[in-house]
């Protein structure tokens, strides 16, 4: 047997005949096209159905503007809050051993498994007119439900685990040797975090932040329960899309929706870029000489 023959037999053992391969690729691509590409394309074609002027006109509406501003504001509060929490939680869970750690990790993931509608409802039960703090809030003239604070709280809840769950496995895999070395060399805790830990987790951090941001800007169910749908005041972009759609203003609804779809596309591009960078860094680390296996890659 010549060597080419051996290779050919070995290959035949781990792959399928060409017609099977092409059929499977065809079915998979057909499914992706029907369920992912078409819905995405439909957002843009529906938005531009009556031309660019109608599209731009819909986005210039004052109500659309206030929805965009509110959505940006909500994300600008919710994402940093969950970023600080995510880094703190990952540090505590990944760098130390303590009892109840598995339980804590499960609890951090909990908001993912709660229905968005239930996530909104719990804040109504806390702060609504008939809720625990309802009478007290009313007496002090503070509005949380059917106002911006309620939307912020519900958004924080549904995006709660995103950054923490990216960072925990990453920091666990990296261990504590580098931080310990920095401490032994005289760095303060803050310096250690800033110069050793943060560069190591930066890709995971960006990854978590963009996913958290996409969900924060796009959340519908939870926000819908607490917002009260007051036009120009408590309408986020997804809620504005719903109102326009229910009023049969299809082009306007899809125009606002197309901005959210663009956000999703940008999110996917950044996500793929981060994954690519992360792989490149790991390959670079693997190819380093063994005496410097842990040197950070150039920033």
């Amino acid at each position: 047997m010549s060597s080419t023959q051996v290779i050919r037999t070995a290959k035949a053992g781990t792959t399928e005949p060409a017609w099977v391969r092409f059929t499977l690729i065809g079915i998979a691509l057909g499914f992706i096209f029907l369920f992912l590409v078409l819905p995405l394309a439909a957002v843009f074609t529906e938005a531009l159905r009556k031309g660019a002027d109608a599209f731009i006109g819909a986005l210039k509406e004052p109500d659309a503007w206030s929805a965009i501003r509110l959505t940006l504001l909500i994300a600008a509060i919710a994402v940093p809050m969950n970023l600080v929490f995510g880094v703190m939680a990952a540090w505590a869970i990944a760098k130390y051993e303590f009892r109840g750690k598995a339980m804590l990790t499960t609890l951090v993931d909990l908001p993912f498994s709660v229905s968005p509608v239930v996530s909104g409802l719990i804040y109504v039960l806390m702060f609504g007119a008939q809720g625990w703090f309802g009478p007290w809030l009313q007496a002090h003239d503070i509005k949380i439900i059917f106002a911006v604070p309620g939307i912020v709280l519900a958004t924080i809840f549904v995006t709660f685990p995103f950054i923490a769950r990216e960072l925990i496995p990453l920091m666990q895999a990296q261990g504590t040797e580098e931080e310990q070395a920095a401490m032994v060399l005289g760095a303060t805790g803050w310096q250690t975090f800033w110069h050793v830990t943060l560069p190591n987790i930066r890709w995971g951090l960006i990854y978590g932040v963009i996913l958290c941001n996409a969900r924060a800007m796009g959340e519908f169910g939870a926000v819908s329960v607490v917002s009260g749908h007051i036009r120009g005041q408590t309408n986020t972009m997804p809620l504005h899309v719903e109102i326009l759609y229910n009023e049969y203003q299809s082009v306007a609804a899809f125009a606002v929706a197309s901005l959210l779809a663009l956000l999703a596309l940008v999110t996917l591009v950044i996500k793929s870029w981060v994954e690519w960078q992360f792989e490149r860094d790991q390959k670079a680390a693997a190819s380093l000489p063994p005496e410097r296996p842990l040197a950070p890659s150039p920033v």
Partner: peptide
């Protein structure tokens, strides 16, 4: 295609619904 698989995570549910 690989990147597109995550679209349902990134696309707001209301947009997916009307589309």
């Amino acid at each position: 295609i690989d990147a597109l698989v995550d679209l349902p995570f990134a696309l707001p549910t209301a947009v997916a619904g009307i589309s």
